[in-house]
Design a protein around this nucleic acid. Structure first.
Lengths: 196, 196
DNA sequence: CCTTTTTTGTGACCTGATACTAATATTAGT
DNA sequence: ACTAATATTAGTATCAGGTCACAAAAAAGG
């Protein structure tokens, strides 16, 4: 049975959203109407042509991949660093950081911010985390900006390890405390038997 | 000065890789040659036309966004759960998890795997992390599969908090140890003054 | 100087669109 | 039942950004 105009247009929007690559011709077949009708419908609903839709998706990818690269490099934005002494980083809590149920930030994101900051503060090419003790003082919500402050407490040049204290706060309120033990270079040779 | 064919083709590949959206016409202007030359060059280098390039980028986005969603929900793949008792999760270390310099997994990913698993093990709608103590025993490299085992050590029904021990290993070797204190529901009311 | 390679130009064609006009169905109103 | 309004379909012209094939001009190599 053929759909009424209104229903068809609504359905059209839905179909195109699900599959931005579909052409007018395929849509025409799908809805059993002429290509012209599809085009009128698109016009009415302000849906751009297939090529434009594809372009849009593609450009989203590009910006998204840039973003994920940044995220990958350092979690949060480093605001200030004085090597081997202190560091300051900002993380804005966005949708991808929170539990959808209550909009509270997942713990590992605060951890990642602090951990990244610690890596950045230590002035060495290769630094890995050895140990961490963290406390979540207050929940952090969607939209809040978390400022993490790192302070190097101990630096052992011989053993190449250091202890860093991180305090993260939203406004004047402390939300997270962490102590990280970082090491410069542990056994870098990969054990092949573990490599799958 | 005009480039020789070989140099132009190499440069072409580079330019197009940086900017997949560029059309033959723009390229022709850029290199001061005719559109036809650009097309011959593309043919020679097996570079598809602009529309195909854009499509490719777009389809990458789609698969990538699906992936990031999955990653967002739970870090690692939950293999087995017995509520309030134990849990098992697998994380395969991929490119985005490691430092590019030495291919060692960043600490916060192992933390995230363990932390996600703890959230999953506790049988309650709202669970947040209160405290965590973690140790990185061995570095984990690109391509390795990390199995995290969670064991609930303490469950306090009145105070609604629990302590979970996580042991992560690659093959038979333990790489990460963690103790997580989780709480069901702390102050869910968001303090507006902190909301930016 | 002549041959070969590289570059350029031309014309025909394709796809997925837009824009506009005209004709035909369908629906509602009286 | 007839008419007016609206919805749908059809057809044509045009465009952008490509495709291909072929011929001519320019550059390079011997």
């Amino acid at each position: 049975m053929k759909l009424k105009k209104k229903d068809r247009q609504d359905k059209l929007l839905q179909v195109i959203e699900e599959n931005p690559f579909i052409t007018d011709e395929e849509l025409a077949k799908l809805f059993q109407v002429s290509i012209q009708t599809i085009r009128l419908d698109r016009l009415g609903k302000n849906i751009p042509e297939a090529r434009e839709r594809i372009k849009k998706v593609a450009s989203q990818t590009l910006t998204a991949s840039v973003k994920s690269l940044q995220i990958d490099e350092v979690i949060g934005e480093i605001l200030d660093i004085s090597m081997n002494e202190t560091g300051l980083s900002l993380l804005e809590i966005e949708n991808e950081h929170v539990f959808s149920r209550n909009q509270i930030a997942r713990g590992h994101h605060l951890f990642a911010q602090a951990n990244s900051l610690c890596v950045a503060v230590i002035d060495a090419p290769i630094v890995v985390t050895k140990r961490a003790n963290v406390q979540y003082i207050q929940p952090v919500f969607l939209g809040q900006r978390v400022i993490a402050k790192a302070q190097v407490k101990m630096l052992d040049h011989e053993k190449d390890h250091s202890i860093i204290e991180v305090k993260s706060s939203v406004g004047s309120e402390i939300v997270f405390l962490g102590e990280f033990e970082m090491v410069k270079h542990i056994g870098t040779e990969r054990k092949n038997r573990n490599y799958v």
